[in-house]
Amino acid sequence: MVTEIAIIDVLPGHEAAFAAAFQKTGHQLLATTPGCISVKMYRSSENPSRFTGVNEWESEKAHLENFRGSDRYIKYGEVLRPHLAVTPLVQHFDDVLDN
């Protein structure tokens, strides 16, 4: 299993629209992707324009091939990109307790 963490900065004033777009469409696109185990989106209380997506995948390959390499990713971008201030920082992490 791998955890994908995305640091997402949205345009000031777009916070509610970003959250609504994720709730309405983004979450479903991720959660129904083969190999996706769980999907969460958090909003910073210190910086309300910053969100963090934390998604668990069966493998990094499942994320990259089944989501990033699919039409789902294109739709995800179409829905959320209008609200982004910058390109999100996305990285994959392994649990140190599982080694």
Rank of each mutant, 00 (worst) to 15 (best):
A85E: 09
E46V: 00
H92C: 10
G26Q: 07
G35L: 03
S38A: 09
S59I: 08
N99G: 06
E65R: 12
L30K: 03
E15Q: 09
L80H: 08
F67T: 04
H63P: 00
P82F: 12
V54E: 15
I7A: 01
E65F: 08
H63W: 14
R81E: 13
T25S: 14
T87F: 11
T52C: 15
F93N: 05
L84P: 02
V96G: 00
T33I: 09
E15S: 04
V79K: 04
D98A: 12
F93M: 10
R50A: 10
S59Q: 07
G77N: 14
E60M: 04
I5S: 05
P88H: 07
H83K: 05
G77K: 08
L29H: 01
Y42V: 15
V79D: 02
G26Y: 05
K75V: 12
P12S: 12
G69W: 09
F51T: 09
A19E: 12
K75S: 11
A17S: 13
H83Q: 11
R50L: 10
A16N: 09
H92T: 03
G26L: 04
V10Y: 03
V39F: 03
Y76W: 13
V39S: 03
T87Q: 13
S70C: 07
E78I: 05
G13P: 04
T87M: 11
F51G: 04
V86Y: 14
S44Q: 10
S45K: 10
F22M: 10
V96Q: 03
F93Y: 13
H83F: 15
P82R: 13
S44A: 15
E60W: 02
M1I: 07
L97I: 08
F67H: 05
E56Q: 08
V86W: 10
F51Q: 07
V96R: 06
G53P: 01
R72V: 04
K61N: 09
I5V: 11
G26H: 06
D98E: 06
H63V: 02
K61L: 04
I7Q: 03
D94M: 01
Y73A: 15
A6F: 14
Q23K: 14
G69C: 08
A17P: 06
V2M: 08
M41T: 11
V2A: 06
E15N: 02
S45I: 12
H14G: 00
A17I: 09
F93L: 11
G69R: 05
I7H: 02
E56G: 03
D71Q: 12
G35P: 04
A20G: 06
K24Y: 07
T3N: 01
S59R: 05
Y42M: 15
L30E: 02
L97M: 14
G26S: 08
Y42H: 15
R72Y: 05
D94E: 06
G26F: 02
A62C: 05
Y42A: 15
L30G: 02
G69F: 09
D71L: 11
C36G: 03
E65W: 06
S38V: 01
G69S: 10
T25H: 14
N99Q: 07
P48M: 04
G77A: 06
G35F: 01
